[in-house]
Amino acid sequence: MSDLRSLYQEVILDHNKNPRNFRVMEDADRSLEGYNPLCGDRYVIYVRMDGDTIEDVSFTGSGCAISKASASVMSALVKKKTKEEALRLFSQFHDLVTGHGVGGNEEGLGKMAVFAGVSEFPARVKCASLAWHTLKAVLERQTTAVSTE
């Protein structure tokens, strides 16, 4: 049970049940679909920019608890951040879930830290990073849907 609790932490279960910023954004500047063909996770990430700052971010879609909670936590973390800051968070998150470079130093990761357990479950890394990859693509103005396959 302890291994499972490291993956399915209360914060993750809560974000899965009550996802934040879970809505269509009518006045979004940009939106993009992210899809994980392995398990069928599918989300659309919406962003409204103010210059270089993410004024608002939201998402819709469905998928497993890990993918949905990750999208929810991400939306809370990157709101009002600059593009550069958001991309830095992406790198931190990526290192965290793939088990690279964090080395037990989870301070400064904030809410993101609850996803540290994902690195013990390699099959679930794609679930956790789907929303983040999609956000990165949105910020870099890609127009083709993101697939984590």
């Binding site: 499972l4 399915y8 890990i66 479950f121 099959a123």
Partner: peptide
């Protein structure tokens, strides 16, 4: 209310 992928991970444990 529970995605199959989450079920699969927990069953694997």
């Amino acid at each position: 209310g529970i995605h199959p992928h989450d079920i699969g991970t927990i069953l694997d444990q």
